[in-house]
């Protein structure tokens, strides 16, 4: 029976740092579909072509792999928060090149890039602010579930918990973000 811990992203990252090329390939195979989904969902319609998505994913990977040794991974899921930051920076750069800055649009320096064009900038800003106000674990869980579209089983693998436990913890994280947005 294969040790579940060997399936975690953290495990693969540690092996990659140690020079295990197989682990690096496994890491890419594991993360790339999630990254592609995340990137595609963030691109505005005008840039949502296959090539644009691929470019964005490629750029993000380059940055991540270059800094593989220095990424600070203390808690399960930290890697996904890091990926999110790198990808949003790459997306902002891409938008800037196309002369279109969603950041300027909502008038803030916060890491704001609209997930889709049918979301009001104010709603998105409120979400971002609520996200930043949450404890790290809650923030990570919301990002993994909503933004990366990970299943409970995938999240459970990362945390070394059962899917039911993670279902409950994700639920509490979502309740928290609603409560934060409410100001309660």
């Amino acid at each position: 029976m294969v040790d579940v811990a060997q399936h975690t992203t953290q495990f693969l990252l540690l092996r990659s740092r140690a020079g295990d090329s197989g682990a690096r390939a496994a890491l890419v195979a594991r993360i790339e579909p999630l990254l592609r989904r995340f990137a595609h969902g963030r691109l505005p319609q005008m840039l949502r072509h296959e090539q644009d998505t691929s470019d964005l994913v490629q750029l993000t990977w380059l940055k991540v792999l270059n800094k593989l040794d220095s990424i600070d991974l203390q808690e399960p899921g930290d890697f996904f928060s890091y990926l999110r930051t790198v990808l949003l920076n790459a997306l902002r750069e891409a938008l800037r090149k196309h002369g279109r800055s969603q950041v300027d649009h909502v008038g803030t320096d916060a890491a704001v890039v609209l997930p889709a064009e049918n979301v009001a900038p104010d709603d998105w800003l409120a979400y971002e602010q609520a996200l930043q106000a949450m404890p790290q674990e809650h923030r990570t869980l919301v990002v993994m579930r909503f933004e990366f579209g990970m299943s409970f089983a995938e999240i459970a693998d990362e945390f070394g918990e059962s899917a039911d436990t993670m279902r409950m913890r994700v639920n509490r994280a979502i309740a928290r973000i609603a409560a934060v947005a409410d100001g309660s």
Binding site: G41, P115, A116, V119, G149
Partner: peptide, 10 residues
């Protein structure tokens, strides 16, 4: 709405 928009966009 935001959760739905992620799914829609992706």
């Amino acid at each position: 709405a935001l959760a739905g928009s992620f799914a829609v966009a992706a």
